[in-house]
């Protein structure tokens, strides 16, 4: 599988944190802001901005953690914990 391009935001180590988001989605933006506010080291990708040939693979990856294939999907430590949607309290508790 060729690696899709993720943006890295450096910060406090709280495990491997990956945010799958859409660039047009309000709750995704809020989730992204919250990660910044918390200052945790994380990766994110705007799936809608990927080249078409990478889209299918990216969505399959999201579906692996979240069968609905919805956004935002926040994956902590390869799926030890998955937070779907902008669940502010839950995210703060998991990463704060």
């Amino acid at each position: 599988m060729n690696q899709m391009k993720m943006e890295h935001v450096p910060g406090k180590a709280r495990g491997k944190i990956t945010l799958y988001a859409l660039s047009t989605c309000g709750w995704c933006a809020k989730t992204k802001e919250l990660l910044r506010e918390l200052g945790v080291d994380h990766f994110y990708v705007f799936v809608d901005l990927l080249p078409p040939e990478e889209l299918e693979e990216a969505i399959r990856e999201v579906e692996k953690f979240n069968p609905a294939g919805s956004f935002p999907t926040l994956v902590i430590n390869e799926g030890t914990r998955v937070i779907i949607g902008f669940r502010e309290q839950e995210i703060r508790e998991a990463l704060g």
Partner: peptide
């Protein structure tokens, strides 16, 4: 406003204003 922007972006991309919070092919 940000969501409306998303609708316009999707309309440009796909030719119809699909939901800004859902992925489209």
């Amino acid at each position: 406003m940000n969501l409306v922007r998303g609708l316009l972006v999707n309309e440009q991309r796909y030719g119809y204003p699909s939901c800004p919070c859902r992925i489209s092919f």
